[in-house]
């Protein structure tokens, strides 16, 4: 399976819409797109996850890296629209309490 990443920029807001799977094979591709965005001060990065049907721990690792980088560089990282299956991963790992997550499908945050 692969991952499609669509990017839309408006002023200092960058939206990445993902569809497919975020796993060990596709994670480097996401990291390459996401990390540089988090390195600019004052920018907001919104990652839309509605069409991500599978994520593994390597995928979570990309968001952990992005979170650390956004804190270091004073940018903002938001994840929106993930399915409850994917949200469960963020919940188990406790990452839901340190990452800004909005609008979980099939359940409230």
């Amino acid at each position: 399976m692969n991952l499609q990443i669509k990017q839309e920029d408006q002023d200092n807001i960058h939206e990445l819409s993902l569809s497919g799977e975020v796993d060990a094979f596709t994670a480097p591709q996401l990291r390459e797109k996401l990390m540089p965005l988090t390195e600019k001060e004052g920018e907001t990065i919104v990652v839309k996850l509605a069409n991500v049907n599978y994520m593994d721990s390597t995928g979570l690792g990309v968001f952990v890296g992005a979170l650390k980088s956004s804190k270091q560089n004073n940018s903002t990282l938001k994840l929106t629209g993930m399915t409850s299956r994917v949200h469960r991963l963020f919940e188990i790992t406790g990452l839901d309490e340190v990452i800004d997550i909005e609008d979980v499908k099939g359940g409230s945050v």
């Binding site: 721990s57 979570l60 690792g61 990309v62 952990v64 890296g65 650390k68 188990i92």
Partner: peptide, 8 residues
């Protein structure tokens, strides 16, 4: 560890 790494 590397920023992308973590351990459960």
């Amino acid at each position: 560890v590397d920023p992308n790494m973590f351990i459960t």
